[in-house]
Amino acid sequence: MSLWHETHGTGPDLVLLHGWGLSSAIWGDFADRLAERYRVTLIDLPGLGRSAPAGDMSLDTVVEALLDAAPEQAHWIGWSLGGQLALACAEQAPERLKSLSLIAANPCFVAREDWPCAMAPDVFNAFVQSLADNEAKTLQRFAALQTRGSASARDELKRLKNVISTAEPRALAAALMLLESDLRSALVGLNCPAQLILGDQDQLVPAGLAEQARALNPSLQAHMLAHSAHMPFVSHADEVLIMLNALVRQVDGADAAG
Results as ranks from 00 to 15, higher is better:
Ser152Ala: 15
Leu179Ile: 13
Ser181Gln: 13
Asn125Ala: 15
Ser150Ile: 08
Asn106Ala: 12
Ala118Glu: 08
Ala132Asp: 11
Val188Ala: 12
Leu139Arg: 02
Gln146Ser: 09
Ala222Leu: 10
Pro121Tyr: 05
Pro169Glu: 08
Ala136Leu: 07
Ile197Ala: 06
Cys108Pro: 12
Arg214His: 04
Pro107Tyr: 05
Ser130Cys: 09
Leu209Gln: 04
Gln203Thr: 07
Leu209Met: 13
Pro116Glu: 11
Leu139Pro: 06
Ala105Tyr: 01
Pro107Phe: 06
Ala171Val: 10
Asn162Tyr: 05
Ser165Glu: 09
Ser185Tyr: 00
Gln195Pro: 04
Asp200Ser: 10
Leu196Glu: 01
Arg184Thr: 07
Ala104Arg: 02
Glu211Cys: 01
Ala151Tyr: 00
Cys117Trp: 11
Arg148Ala: 14
Ser181Glu: 07
Ile103Arg: 00
Asn125Asp: 15
Thr138Gly: 07
Ala144Cys: 05
Gln146Thr: 13
Ser219Val: 04
Cys108Phe: 11
Pro107Ile: 08
Arg141His: 00
Leu160Lys: 02
Leu145Tyr: 05
Ser219Phe: 00
Gln140Asn: 11
Ala222Ile: 05
Ala213Val: 10
Ser150Asn: 09
Ala153Lys: 04
Phe109Asn: 06
Gly149Cys: 13
Leu183Lys: 02
Ala143Asn: 15
Ala207Lys: 03
Phe127Ala: 10
Glu211Met: 09
Ser130Gln: 11
Pro193Tyr: 07
Leu198Thr: 03
Val163Cys: 09
Leu179Pro: 02
Leu145Trp: 12
Gly199His: 01
Ala153Trp: 09
Phe127Cys: 04
Glu113Lys: 04
Gln140Arg: 12
Gln140Thr: 01
Met119Tyr: 03
Leu216Gly: 08
Thr166Pro: 00
Ala215His: 05
Gly189Cys: 03
Ala207Gly: 08
Pro107Gln: 09
Leu172Ser: 08
Ala144Phe: 01
Ser150Cys: 05
Thr166Glu: 15
Leu179Lys: 00
Leu178Met: 12
Cys108Arg: 13
Leu178Phe: 06
Ala207Asp: 05
Pro193Cys: 07
Ala144Asp: 10
Asp200Gln: 09
Cys108Asn: 01
